[in-house]
Design a binder for these strands. Structure first.
Lengths: 351, 351
DNA sequence: TCCACTTTGGCAACAGTGTTGCTTAAGTGC
DNA sequence: GCACTTAAGCAACACTGTTGCCAAAGTGGA
């Protein structure tokens, strides 16, 4: 790491702390304590960030026996990111500010059967539409979430069930090309990874997002960063075996969480599906010391109460004395999570 | 991060690269390319490290049409670390050099029933014995591995089955006190975490260590770092449910990996135990994109071939087209792993 | 109202990082 | 023998965070 990288690192550190503080703001002295830099260094960093318009004054804090501190906060509206959830039959897009707050939404039809080029067109069009209202140059990045598996590093799609022509399609590059050379970076990630990156809550700790629709997938966020594995393959949750020698699954295995869950759903037995989801979640919670479990996907959306209650019940029974993770249904946060991934580099995270 | 921290970061970066290169050595130009620093910066860093005795010349490389590069390598013997595996009935300790190579071994009886203070005495005595032969000041750290759960951050033991008086005992501090104020830092970690940190192989990628003896535990190494979770609780593998509504486990659950495995072992059906271990491992491999699975513990040691073969068979069946992780039995690498954890800070890793 | 005290935060000089420009050393290959 | 290539160091430099100092802006007691 060299000096420019050091500078960027510290800038990102301060921005991340200000973001976490949100509207409350933070004083220079507090920033110095949190960053372990000297107050003078913080002042210099703040000077830079303010010159770029990223940080603004936020009034004064109470005095503790001396001059009251000048509070600083993120100039949230100074920059934006766009997140797009390209699902098989629907497109949802959002524009968010630096705090991750949704500023603008867009929703439209989509059909993977039209082929990947047509979908890339639609995605680019949605981005253009959302950017028109934002000042030029204020856009930091575009995040695109699509059904996995896919290769996050190079932005290439994998097998999409039912749409063989999608395999190997470089969606990231296709969208970037359509947005033009002056556009900010485009990211492509799995919908489950975007789902786990939903902003607005503390980014620290470990989170698990379970997505139950036509299949069962998961996203992991460890130590505040999405965990993708070396080959973008992490998060394979649907084919976790929960019932040795159980019913055969389409993957060739037996007793996978997915087949058990989907069979219960097909029977109309949602509580049982929730219990199975809960058992699978509890395995991951124990393995990775997970703090928060979020549930999403069409099936969960159809009865969020049943699923959160069912999963919570299993987790309570299975965490032996330890803290029970928070369980909540996240109503389509995938687009917001995709935007968050595009925002992440500003705060020194990969995504 | 400030300038001294930057310096330390880059020093650690260079040391880590030299360690990975091992005896082959590396030239300054290669280091510059790998670190993305300028050759001149690398020269300065090497100068510092050589002055401290951490790096030494290693001959010359072949010429590629110009002056041949001066190869550098880690002066492996210049510093050491000690790792202690404090098991319920036995103590194993090693002294390793900076490459993680074992320089000296020690093995002695131990009995947790004697109480934690007596065990701390034994651990400190073993460390003293191993350090006597190393030059003063060459010891970088001491790692102690003990049965979990325990709190790695503060170095305090948790519940040890059968030894209730151990709960809450501050073993790290106890050992540090006995070694005196001039001794290097002491670390305490779970034996499974030490088991996964065994050196000598590439530290990159994701590894899983499964330990099968009187219980079933796991250690995780993600992106080259031991993953402990926020509360040192990660790696709970024994109570992963693999057979919904299966036989009751001592944890209160049903169908846990541990109870299934131990029942098979009790029946003398080791291939079945291996298969269950394999199914559990396959779940984790899929979830975390694991590259390498290591097996250890008394039961595995009794028939390593059976277990590696059985686990490998399940992994081959369950990785659908993807790469099959490497499977190997690690014969008591726990002490070496504990030493590795003590060595880690030198190379910029937490452990 | 004054004054001592505390705390914040900026200016200027500084120490130390990696970088740039240049030079020397030590090879290869025609 | 000579042109060329590559490696590696010295000196000057740009820019980082740090230190020393001082002004600003509060609190609280006399």
């Amino acid at each position: 790491m060299n000096l420019p990288a050091l500078r960027g690192h510290n800038d990102a550190l301060v921005l991340a702390l200000l973001r976490e503080a949100g509207l409350d703001g933070l004083g220079r002295t507090e920033l110095a304590a949190l960053t372990r830099l000297t107050p003078q260094a913080v002042s210099k960093i703040i000077g830079r960030l303010r010159a770029e318009g990223l940080v603004a004054d936020a009034g004064r804090g109470p005095s503790t026996g001396g001059k009251p501190r000048t509070l600083l906060q993120l100039a949230a509206g100074a920059r934006h990111a766009v997140g797009v959830h390209a699902d098989r039959d629907e497109l949802r897009a959002v524009r968010v500010d630096m705090l991750g707050t949704v500023v603008e939404r867009f929703r439209g039809p989509l059909d993977f059967a039209d082929g990947p080029d047509a979908v890339a067109d639609e995605v680019a069009r949605a981005v253009d539409r959302l950017c028109g209202n934002a000042g030029a140059g204020s856009l930091l990045g575009v995040g695109v979430a699509a059904p996995g598996p896919l290769d996050w590093r190079v932005g290439v799609m994998g097998r999409v069930t039912g749409y063989p022509e999608w395999e190997g399609y470089p969606l990231r590059q296709a969208v970037a090309d359509r947005l033009g050379p002056d556009a900010p970076p485009v990211l492509l990630d799995k919908d489950t990874n975007a789902g786990v990156a939903v902003p607005g809550r503390r980014a620290v700790g470990n989170s698990l997002y379970l997505h139950l629709s036509t299949g069962l997938g998961a996203g992991l966020r460890l130590r505040g960063e999405v965990f993708r594995g070396e080959r973008s393959a992490a998060g394979e949750f649907g084919h976790q075996v929960l019932l040795l020698d159980g019913p055969p699954c389409r993957c060739g295995g037996r007793g996978c969480a997915e087949v058990l869950c989907l069979e219960a759903v097909a029977r109309g037995d949602l509580p049982e599906a929730a219990r199975i989801l809960g058992e699978g979640a509890a395995n991951v919670v124990a393995l990775l010391d997970v703090d928060r479990v979020w549930l999403g996907g069409r099936v969960v959306d159809s009865a969020p109460e049943v699923f959160t209650r069912g999963v919570r019940r299993v987790l309570e029974a299975r965490t032996l004395g330890g803290p029970v993770p928070e369980v909540a249904a996240s109503e389509d946060g995938v687009a917001e999570g995709a935007a968050e991934l595009a925002l992440a580099p500003l705060f020194g995270r990969v995504g």
